[in-house]
Design a binder for these strands. Sequence first.
DNA 1: GGCTGGAATGAGAAGATTTCGCATTTAGAA
DNA 2: TTCTAAATGCGAAATCTTCTCATTCCAGCC
Lengths: 148, 148
Amino acid sequence: MESQDLKRAGLKATLPRLKILRFLEESDQRHMSAEEVYKALLEAGEEVGLATIYRVLTQFEAAGLVTRHHFDEGHSVFELNLGEHHDHIVCVRCGRVDEFVDEVIEARQHRIAEEKGYEMTDHALYIYGVCPECRKAGGRRTRAEGRG
Amino acid sequence: MESQDLKRAGLKATLPRLKILRFLEESDQRHMSAEEVYKALLEAGEEVGLATIYRVLTQFEAAGLVTRHHFDEGHSVFELNLGEHHDHIVCVRCGRVDEFVDEVIEARQHRIAEEKGYEMTDHALYIYGVCPECRKAGGRRTRAEGRG
DNA sequence: GGCTGGAATGAGAAGATTTCGCATTTAGAA
DNA sequence: TTCTAAATGCGAAATCTTCTCATTCCAGCC
Ligand SMILES: [Mn+2]
Ligand SMILES: [Mn+2]
Ligand SMILES: [Zn+2]
Ligand SMILES: [Zn+2]
């Protein structure tokens, strides 16, 4: 039961929080903006205020339930935390998102932080490019057409 | 003369563009937001409208004169292009910025894009941590206190 | 099961950053 | 110097996100 997940995370099991968490778990989109969550819940008849979406996602982030990304400037994108850290490669044409893990890069990041005398707390790595489909199509599709 | 740099970049040598370019070259801050450029020019008695700062910096970026970064969400940071690509490590406590180049990471990014079938166009890598000074201080200084 | 205090929510206002629209000015060539 | 397209400055607007605060709800206690 999701109530338990919330309790365990130190959050009261309110209806809006349950709706949002359930939605993130059931959605086939792994990466979603606050606005996208808001609209999707609306369409599902589960109304939650936009301000609450923002608040709850930020709380989920603090609690480690979700991770926040900045694929492109201008807005945050959230994804349910499934344990394993990974980085992202984003199609600049259609917005598609693929995930990857590279232990060599991870290790070298730590090494660099160490060399510079920093105590590393986090990192962000985004590769941008044109995805296989868009290369094939060659067309002018916009980012609005898809996100996965 | 900076006029020549602008002409070479395909930009008319207007007074605002000259002021901005000169300022970027002479400033001891390598990484600056539009707002910071605006205020610094103001203090130097060189008034340029904020909208123009934004327009010109975007043009400079398109012309390859500057690079735009997103160290933290919410606003862009610009830096004069000196030829060599590099990535950044940012102090989450005081905002200090250090630079680094890692050929292994660069190479592996290309390899990952290739494996995923993407034609890589760009990448962004930010390491976040606590800088040597802030680790020593241990204090609660805010980001506003410094940026370098 | 009802009662209650503090936390959470919803709605809209406000904040922050960036872009836009348009009247005015300017660069640069004739 | 004159002229025209391009650039600028200003305020309005767009976008994303947070804040304020009145209202509602959760969770523990009778
Ligand atoms: Mn992901
Ligand atoms: Mn730099
Ligand atoms: Zn694509
Ligand atoms: Zn620091």
